[in-house]
Each structure stands twice: as C-alpha cells, then as structure tokens.
Design a protein around this nucleic acid. Sequence first.
DNA 1: AGTGCATATCTTTTT
DNA 2: GATATGCACT
Length: 737
Amino acid sequence: MSGKAVHSIDPEWIKKELNEPQSQAVTATEGPVLVLAGAGSGKTRVLTYRIAYLLACGLASPAEILAMTFTNKAAAEMRERVTRLAPNMMTGLWIGTFHSLFARLLRREGECIGYDRNFSIYDEYDQNTLVKQIIEDLKLDTMDVPTSGALHRISDAKNNLVSPQDYLNNAQHPIEEFVAKVYKEYQIRLRNMNAMDFDDLLLNPIELFERFPLVREFYQDKFHYILVDEYQDTNRAQYVMLKYLAQKHKNICVVGDDDQSIYRWRGAEIRNILDFEKDYATCSKFRLEQNYRSTQNILSAAHSVITNNRQRHAKKLWTEGPVGEPVMVLEVYDDLEEARTIVDKISYEFRRVERNFHDFAILYRTNAQSRVLEEALRTEGIPYIIVGGVKFYERKEVKDVLGYLKVLVNPADAISLRRIINFPARGIGEASLAKLDGYARHKKIMLSEALSHVGSMADLPKRISERVLAFSAMMNKYRSLMSKFSPFEIASAIVEENGILRMLKEENTIESISRAENVRELLSAIADFANSVGPEATLEDFLEHVSLSTDIDKWDDKANAVTLMTLHSAKGLEFPVVYITGLEEGLFPLSRSLSDMMALEEERRLFYVGATRSKDMLYLSWARYRRRYGERLESVKSRFLKELDPEFVRIDNLARPYYGKHATTDEQSYQDTMPDYEDESQERLEFRPGVRVRHPMFGKGTVIQIDAAGSNVKLLVLFDTAGRKRLVLPYAKLEIL
DNA sequence: AGTGCATATCTTTTT
DNA sequence: GATATGCACT
C-alpha cells in the first residue's frame, strides 16, 4: 500500500480497512465530531486514516490540517502512519504536541506580545529557583507554604485562566495573598527573562489571539481541519485555544476516552469531553467499542472495576478475540518478594513460552517502587529499561551544561546565567552575585549585560570583577561563534574550555564518573539531534527539543528488555504481559486520593488504563508489608482488587511461598519466617545468572540460567546480537567478562 | 568562598 | 532512602 503516490489512494479502499464505526468517524469530515474511543479500539487508526482520507479526497491540503497530541511519541507515531498512507503529502502538515505546536506558533508570532523568538522554556526546577528568588527578594512571609506549593497554586490559576490580578482580588486568606504577590512577580520576571513555563506555552497563544485579531484570523483561516487526540486530557487553556482555532471552519474532530482521563491533577478537565456535545451542538458522535488488543477476561475484569466510577459515559468494550487466561492476583509477603515473584514468572515464561523480554511491562504508581524491582531483575540477569524517574535532562551536570547553551541563545535568561556563572567554581559567590543583580535592577538592564559593566561598580573587589569580566568575555566569544560552528562544536568547546569533564574525572568517585558519562551523553545527544534533523539544526532547535521531550519519547520498544514504568507513562502503549504492582490502599489508590471522590475516581481510571495495556496476561500484585519512607509498613489490600469480578480472576496466594508449611495468620510467625535478604550472598560460582560472558561466535551476552542437573553443566545465555542460546559448559568456549 | 557534615522533609503522576 | 537545606569549619 505504501510507496504509491497519493492519487492512488482510493477513499473506498481506506474504508475497507476499517470497521463500521471507525469508517464513519473517518468519513464524517464536516462539522464537529466526537469520537469516544475505548482502550485498544483503534483510536490512532481513526486519526491517521482521517488525515489520509482528507488528503486523498482533496478536501484539504497538508498545510490546512492541524493534528494535536499530548506526547511526542503519539505525534511521531501518527506522523509515521500518515506518511505510510499518504507519502509525499507531509510537507506543511502540523502534527505535534500541544506544547510543541504552540511553541512554534509563539516563536513565529510572539513578538507581538513582547517575546523574543529565542525564549527559554523553564522546567519545574527552574520555576522553583525563580520562586525562591522572588520570595527572598521581596522578603515575603511564606506562611510555611513551600515553594512547590506556591508554584502549584500558581499553575492551577494559570490553567484556569486566572490572572495575577484576578487572583489577588479573589484572595480570601493570607496565604492566597502571599501567593498572589509571588504570582504577579513571577509573571513579570518570566517576561523580563524572555522565558515561559509549560503553562505559558498554552496560555500565551490565548493572549496572542485575543490581543491580535489579525493573527488569530490568519490561523483560523489556515486550519480547515483540526484533529485532537486524548481530548479527555485537555485543560481549560487548551479548550479555549481549540475553540478559537475551530471557530471559522468548525471542522474539529476530537478523540478520547473519559475512562482514560488521568491528568486532572495537572488541570485536565474531564468535563471537556463529557460536555463536547453541548459545546458543539451540531456535532456527530461515534463510539468505538470493539477492542483489538486484550482478551475477554482482561476486558471484563477491567470493566468490573471502572463501573464503580460515577462520572463517566456508560460504555462497554467487547472483543471477538479469545477468552484468555484469568487475570492473576498475586498476594505476596512484602515488596522484595513481590519483585522476586514477578522476576521468577518472567524468567519462567521467557524459558518455557515463546516470549521475549520486551513482551513484559511492570507498572507501578510511584517511581520510588522501581528500585526493588530493578534489583531483582539485575540479580536474575534480566535486561530491563526504566522509563521516567530522574530524567536525563534534569540531572545536575546535564542542566549545568545546558545552562551555558541557554544563556548563549537567550542572554536574558538570568536563571540559567546564575546557575553557570559559578559553575565550575570561579570564585563568584552569592555576595558578588547579589551586587551584580542589584546593579542590573537599578540600571534596568539584563544581568548578563551588567556583567560587562562590572568595572564601574565601586563595591566589587578587583579580583572578582576580573573574573566576572573573563566569564562575560567567554560567553560573548561563544555567542559570536554560534553562526560559524555547529551546536555540537560549540557545546564541546564550552565543556573543554571550562574543564567540566576534567573536573569530574579528577574527582574520581563512582558518582562523578557517572556524571562525566552523562556530560558525554549530552554531547552525543546534540550530535544525534543534528544527524536526525539535518545540518541546519540550530542550538535553539536542540534546546526546544530538550525542553519538550520526555524519557518515554526515547523509549525503545524494540529493545529486548523488560519495561518498567509508571502507570501514567504506560498510557497509549500495549504489552503481551503486564504486571501492575503495589495494589494497596494508600499506594494505589494513593493516600491523597482516599478522601477526595474525584481524585479516587481518577485513580480508578489509572487502574483501568494500566489493566487495558495488556494483550494476553494481566497480573495484579499486592504485598502485606512494604518498605516506604525507609520503614516497613503493614498494608491493606487495594479496593480495586475487591472490586474485580471474581469470575475473571484467579488468586495466587504466595504470601509465604518458601515457608508454606507453617501457615498461620499470626503476625509473629511472619517475623520468624522473614527471609534474611541482606545475608543472601550467592555462592561463588563462576557462572551464575547475570554474569556477562563472551563467546567466540555469538559475541557478548548475559547468562540467564544454569542447569547443573546432568553430568554436564548447561547454560542458557542471552547474547546481545545472536539471541538466546543453550550451551554446554565444557564445550562452549565462554569467557567471563 | 567553599567544603563537609548533620538534619529535615518528604515523595504521586508529566507536557 | 534520597535529596535539600543549614550550619560549622577551613
């Protein structure tokens, strides 16, 4: 089908590839369209075919279509699949995330509202730094509100389109007055620093459209057809922007599933999808309820839980697929055993069944849970990938190097400047910085500009002013080199000139070595970026890519490894075998949601999202005891497990798998039989699971299993490139690495 | 100014 | 258990 020119795409053929409701949703091109698409019902298929259909029928040119998603991964997938259906029709097509498309809009048009096109995008860490500075500078009484709390309230306000002035006017409580003051100053400073936070990327387009009708009309004219993925996760600002964008042509197609709305805490309004029919009175509605992913048992089990939610469109997924195995509930003693049980099962299935490691996903509610699982996988020698957690671009050393690049691109970015002016240490401390800052403020110039005026500042010791000048000169030098050298060359030169790698190497600790690794990885990420985008890729492009990318985007679904990630990250993905861990009250559902009905329903939706990721097998585990905050706590089985319809479930009680003979419910006996994990040193076998080996033919690999049953010791080894091999030890010329 | 140690304070989830 | 902050010391 691919490879042919677009003219050969027959609209009738497109329809043949789809089931009835999918086909209707694709061909209902005119007017507002609501597609309620259950998990695994072919949502992406509808979106991509719809775009292809619009192009094939000549209803729109690529430049007239706008398709928005939430994650880069979803955008990339959509782009790829449309390319396959309609090759050579991609130029000018706007497919991307809300944040990246709006950033593009703002880089083009932001000058009207006072932004330079090189504005910085601040992440949570930068936001925190800024708020702290504000509180210090304004000498505010924080009323014990942590900066993160103030920030959260500010973000809430912004998501709901509440301006600083509105916020102040509505302030009832001294805490709110405090937040109002911070909020106001926060917005002022962001603008002075030519910087936006994530919320601004959605809000500033609204300001742009409201203040500049000509700009608004240009884009209203431009986009004849608008498609929105995951509509249930849109917030107020996104809702308003979509309304503006669709106002002229009114061809807006939104796809979503209210049961999969899991971002309320970030301002998502489930009401947007529940009320779409009211907002767009003439809309047509289509339901996609046939599931192509999971077994009947999985669907029924997931359904039995989600129906406990009150806020939802009634619907029920069905499948023509097999009934499948029952959903397995694993009851285990503690978190260590949970990890061990799961690893055992994976290892078993890997050996007995035709499965590879990438068929498995282990999901959890909080990132902190990954540690134990990781360790268990490591001791068993099973390759794994962790998605999320401490993100690469948020690591200190990486942010430090990025800080240089950000200041080069956007000299007004005082947050990044402060970060690097004394990194590596060049003797410009807090006190000197405060003086420089005061000077800049007084003269109403940028901090970076004040650096070169340092000679005229009487109260700065000469030694220090010399250092400041040297730093300033260095930055100016690189700024002038930016047009002549590639981003990679610039970044490498900066790392070299400032001795960043050298410094980390000299420190020579495990920690500093891995930091040096990360710096090198950053440099190669810059090179990779240039390779994939093309030689015209600028530093600005790279920085935007960094700001808007997440770890899930880099997740490689082809790698032969078990995937570990949070339930949130798993949305939109699928795996043959899924483990959902930590099903305990207070953990999943998380404690903060227990008293809040709306939050609890969101947790339940999260459970539903997790469960519907699985194609063949779903395991749900809970542990009687779990280490949290560093201490061992007794847990209570999650209500979600109780809500499961027992008809589709089998319970496996493994609470004491190794001590089953002395089954009692007495807590003391648990203590007695508690395995002593600390002391479990493996016998010093040369070959044991996890050991890396080299084979003359197959290359490098990892030992998975040892079978010493017969006279010859047999090994099961997973080679990095040659796959899985069974080897007889005396004959295989294996070398331990 | 910069370092190191003790203490506190937590932990959702992410574009 | 991990990170951030504060304080004392060099």
